[in-house]
Write a protein that binds this DNA or RNA. Structure first.
Lengths: 193, 193
DNA sequence: CCAATTTCTTGATTCAAATCATTGGGACCA
DNA sequence: TGGTCCCAATGATTTGAATCAAGAAATTGG
């Protein structure tokens, strides 16, 4: 039931069976139906989730009430409003299931406890955060320096599986475009080959 | 000479004098003249820097050769192309001094050595990366959801000291605008009060 | 299986920012 | 002192994406 989580940790630091058991003892499990929310703006994010199965989207709402998707998450990806989780402030992000989902959760107390008692867990988190930062920096760079066409091409290359599973207008939202513009970009790209 | 670095670490984990000495033994010092580069695209980023004094900008170059500033750094801020630093790949970022600078450097071997031998250093890094990730996420959210006017206002509120020290066209570049547009935004904001 | 809803595409129009172009103000220096 | 360079401000024009609008295709649910 917690294989995906453990295999993620084992990718970075190798755990003994005892350590695996210790971690599992701190985890809980949750299922979500399509369109259910894992987190809503204004609530406090009490858990970080890892996706065992399914797909979700994270989005924020701007002053005019428009939604902007900031992230997708598929199997093996982590989720949560870190700012809200660590500072116990109201979340600014919404996280919604796009398909029926199986999640593994870790609460703040469980997280802190593991950090205290298991150096490998802290190492895992340091590496995880470093990689997440690098990935986000890369995405920010692409947003800034690529044309919409190239952004879409990059997106398709990096996340071909998401393109299959997520409606086009959500990908448009993620890329900061209207659905119409993305549609035109696609036909433009199709032309030039 | 290394007070700024040590005080940054001490903010997150409190060090004994011995630990402070151990860290300092792994650091080096560097001065940079205005317009000198700390890092150039294509080079491998061998050091992470902390700014003791001065100001720098990080920028990337797009396919058409246009520069896009992705970050500024003032006293107490950290710098470097993390992707290049950890993977020993050519850097995609350029880091240039905007004023004469004093930097404290840590090399990859020194960093790894401290991670191995000093749990507090690992804890410091985990917290640092987590905060950096949260801050970058916030910036990305603002880029996506705020109007250019609000983005500029937010920038001025968060970094009033940068506005003083950095030419306007660089702030425009950071915000993803042309200098002309930023100039108009400023006069628009001045009108409405 | 069919009706309802959602999703995608395509066209016409509008609008905001980029681009192009000019001006004026300092700073620095011979 | 006059000249050059750099920077900011402003005006005129162009351009590319958003918006508005409509219809076709696909999915969903009863």
């Amino acid at each position: 039931m917690y294989e995906v989580f453990l295999s993620k940790v084992n990718e970075k630091v190798s755990l003994t069976p005892q350590e695996e058991a210790e971690i599992v003892a701190h985890l809980t499990h949750k299922t979500l139906r399509k369109r259910q929310f894992f987190l809503q703006e204004g609530d406090i994010c009490r858990y970080i989730a890892l996706v065992e199965k399914g797909a979700l989207r994270t989005y924020v709402t701007d002053l005019e009430g428009h939604e902007h998707i900031t992230a997708f998450a598929l199997e093996g990806w982590s989720l949560g409003d870190l700012c809200s989780f660590f500072k116990e402030e109201p979340a600014t992000q919404n996280i919604e299931a796009l398909e029926d989902c199986e999640l593994v959760l870790i609460s703040r107390p469980a997280h802190e406890s593991l950090l205290q008692t298991m150096p490998k867990y802290e190492t895992y988190n340091r590496i995880l955060m470093t990689e997440a930062y690098i990935a986000l920096q890369k995405r920010t760079r692409d947003m800034i320096s690529l044309s919409p066409d190239d952004q879409y091409k990059a997106f398709v290359n990096v996340y071909p599986n998401i393109v299959q599973r997520v409606p086009q207008h959500m990908i448009a939202s993620y890329l900061g475009l209207t659905p119409e513009t993305l549609s035109r970009i696609k036909s433009r790209i199709a032309q030039h080959r």
